[in-house]
Simulated assay, not measured.
Amino acid sequence: MSDAFTLAAGDGVQVRVTGLRDTLRAMSRAGAAAEDMKEVMHSLGMIVVHAARPPTRSGALAGTIRASKTKTKAVVRAGYASVPYAGVIHYGWPARNIPANPFLDQARAEQMPRILREFEAALIDILDKEKLT
């Protein structure tokens, strides 16, 4: 499985990222702390968390949106066992005539330029901190 991917950065601009896994692995071998990358990925996820606007009836769904801490990707989740309908709201349920409301995807797309800027700045900071530049 390739770790290359393309991001739509808005205004018709696309960014092709290749070798992110290899870069992170090399940084780790060179001494960059995994905790630093976890914090970076968490902060990128939090950008989406703050921008997400789920539909509100009770506000319960909005209270379940959170970012995970992993060192290789930013993960944003919504829902708990007590709020099991997050996926249905986001992806819809055609058989029940429930339209999709992809609030997380919309937040990610809207915030992509900021995410890319902050990701680049964070990687440069880590490389400088670890004297890898």
Rank of each mutant, 00 (worst) to 15 (best):
M1N: 10
M1S: 10
S2V: 03
S2I: 02
D3A: 00
F5E: 07
T6I: 11
T6C: 06
T6V: 14
L7P: 01
L7V: 13
A8S: 12
G10K: 00
G10R: 01
D11W: 00
G12Y: 06
V13L: 09
Q14S: 14
Q14R: 11
V15Q: 08
V15C: 03
V17C: 07
V17R: 05
L20G: 00
R21V: 08
D22V: 08
T23S: 06
T23K: 04
R25C: 00
A26Q: 15
S28R: 10
A30N: 15
A30C: 09
A30S: 14
G31E: 05
A32Q: 04
A33N: 13
A34M: 08
E35C: 07
E35W: 10
E35L: 13
D36I: 07
D36S: 12
V40H: 03
M41H: 06
H42F: 11
H42I: 01
G45V: 10
R53N: 13
T56P: 06
R57M: 06
L61D: 07
A62E: 11
A62C: 05
G63A: 01
G63C: 03
G63E: 09
K69S: 12
K69N: 11
T70L: 09
T70N: 13
T70F: 04
T70R: 15
K71P: 14
T72Y: 03
A74G: 09
A78I: 05
G79F: 06
A81C: 07
S82Y: 05
S82H: 07
P84T: 00
P84F: 02
G87W: 00
V88W: 11
V88G: 01
I89T: 02
H90F: 07
H90R: 05
H90T: 04
H90Y: 08
W93D: 10
P94L: 10
I98Y: 02
I98G: 01
P99V: 03
P102N: 03
F103W: 03
F103L: 05
D105R: 01
Q106V: 13
R108W: 02
A109F: 04
Q111D: 03
Q111V: 06
M112I: 04
P113V: 04
L116H: 00
L116K: 01
R117Y: 12
E118H: 13
F119Y: 11
E120Y: 11
E120I: 09
E120P: 00
A121C: 09
A121F: 11
A121S: 13
A121D: 15
A122C: 10
A122V: 09
L123A: 07
L123T: 07
L123K: 04
I124K: 14
I124W: 14
I124A: 14
L127H: 03
D128R: 12
K129S: 09
E130H: 14
E130P: 08
K131C: 09
L132T: 03
T133C: 10
